[in-house]
Design a binder for these strands. Structure first.
Length: 384
RNA sequence: GGGUAGGUUGAGCAGGUGGUGAGCUCCGCUGACUGUAGAUCAGCCGUCUUCGACUGUGGGGGUUCGAUUCCCUCCCUGCCCA
């Protein structure tokens, strides 16, 4: 029986960057690729049709949230996650490991699993590797993630190492518990920003028969340089491992370049949709905050170089008005644009890697967003 | 015309019955957000030479060392009665 997921990639002339295709039961995914986050079986404010129009090929949904509400059993009875949310493309489900990290103050971690209080009603909840597999198999995602433990990378090395070792033991249990043949399972490398620990973690996770390798525990407060250095270590340690590589939780436009050059094939991040809901648009002139007063009288599209519905049909002035009036359409239009922008950016990266124009693209985008990726666009808009 | 309740920083309020009114919520301005407890959060929001100073409680006048407070007068708004 052929594997349900296959990944074929080829090297490029740009660093360690690869071009590839990940095939799943619900369609093919071109890499490098970005996955919008749809935690609760919805990419906030967007319909599946919107996602398709934006060029989205795969989305991420969340084990923890969906198990609490509406319940993975219910979703299974209703025909699985794809049918439930009317998205027939590939879906990757996160395992809940990140919630353990972000909600850790509410619970405790032991070697068997983690206990914490539901954010909905305070009821005690328990996740173990076996439980995470059970939930994800019930949801029926195309790609399941191993249940891991990530910790603040700035903690003492001992604590980072303990969490990493636990993640490795849990990885074995996830593999043992996972049985759906039509669902891939990715392992997650941990180890904080400690080079030695990362090497140990890559050796452990890559030594297991996972369908893909994820890099976790980054973009949680460490510097851009630290993340890049850690990705270098991971890339070296993975060497010519042919499996798809997924950098979890990244990122902003400038972050993609640094990671792609270090061999990353897949990304996910809440940023495009989260910042969209507060008025921040990613555009060909950098970040624009649609709430800024200066946009109230600007008749042009949010991004003149974008072909999304928002930019084809609406003005900056209209977006600025919608945000001020707290109109719901603001969330959809801005989210649609940011997701489209991110998909376009990934496509341009793929094209650039293929035809050799990647370096130029990198220069252009880095200039638009600034070296740190956090600079505002003032220079590029008012300094023309 | 008579009576009554009011007039506080863009709006709405709090407070203050002789001893330092810049306090709140909106609105407004700006920023943050990286495997989403986030349509959230933070800062600013009278003026200025901004670790501080100054101005400001409807207008004007008076009493007083000192007035948002007491007195006189005028203006404005709501309500009631004619």
């Amino acid at each position: 029986m052929p594997p349900s997921i296959t990944f074929a990639s080829r090297a490029t002339t740009t660093g360690r960057a690869r071009l590839g295709v990940l095939t799943t039961p619900h369609g093919a995914i071109e890499t490098p690729q970005f996955m919008p986050v749809g935690t609760q079986a919805t990419v906030k404010a967007l319909t599946p049709g919107d996602l398709r129009a934006a060029g989205v090929q795969v989305i991420l949904a969340n084990t923890y949230h969906l198990s609490l509400r509406p319940g993975h059993d219910r979703i299974a009875r209703l025909g699985g996650l794809h049918r439930f949310m009317a998205w027939d493309g590939p879906i990757l489900t996160d395992s809940g490991g990140f919630q353990v990290f972000s909600l850790a103050h509410l619970g405790k971690v032991d070697d068997d699993g983690v206990t914490f209080a539901s954010h909905l009603d305070g009821s005690p909840q328990r996740l173990t590797p076996e439980r995470a597999m059970e939930i994800q198999e019930a949801l029926g995602s195309d790609i399941a993630m191993a249940f891991d433990q990530l910790v603040d990378a700035t903690l003492a090395a001992g604590e980072v190492a303990d969490a990493m070792e636990r993640t490795h033991r849990w990885a074995e249990r996830c593999l043992a518990a996972h049985s759906r043949r039509d669902q891939a399972l990715f392992g997650i490398v941990q180890g904080g920003v400690d080079d030695a620990l990362r090497r140990v973690s890559v050796a452990a996770i890559a030594g297991m028969p996972f369908d893909g390798i994820a890099i976790g525990g980054l973009s949680v407060g460490e510097s851009k340089d630290q993340m890049a250095a850690t990705l270098d270590v991971v890339a070296d340690a993975l060497a010519d491992d042919p499996r798809v590589r997924y950098l979890m939780g990244v990122g902003a436009p400038p972050d993609f370049f640094s990671a792609v050059e270090r061999g990353i094939d897949l990304f996910d991040c809440v940023l495009p949709t989260r910042v969209a809901r507060t008025g921040q648009l990613w555009t060909s002139v950098g970040k624009l905050n649609m709430r800024n007063a200066r946009f109230l009288d600007e008749p042009g599209p949010p991004d003149p170089d974008c072909g999304c519905e928002t930019c084809r049909s609406h003005s900056r002035a209209y977006l600025a008005h919608l945000f001020r009036a707290d109109e719901l359409l603001a969330y959809r239009l801005s989210s649609l644009h940011n997701v489209t922008y991110t998909q376009d950016l990934m496509r341009r990266i793929r094209t650039g890697l293929d035809d050799g124009s990647y370096g130029t693209l990198r220069e252009v985008v880095m200039a638009q967003y600034g070296r740190s990726g956090t600079r505002s666009d003032k220079a590029s808009v008012t300094g023309r």
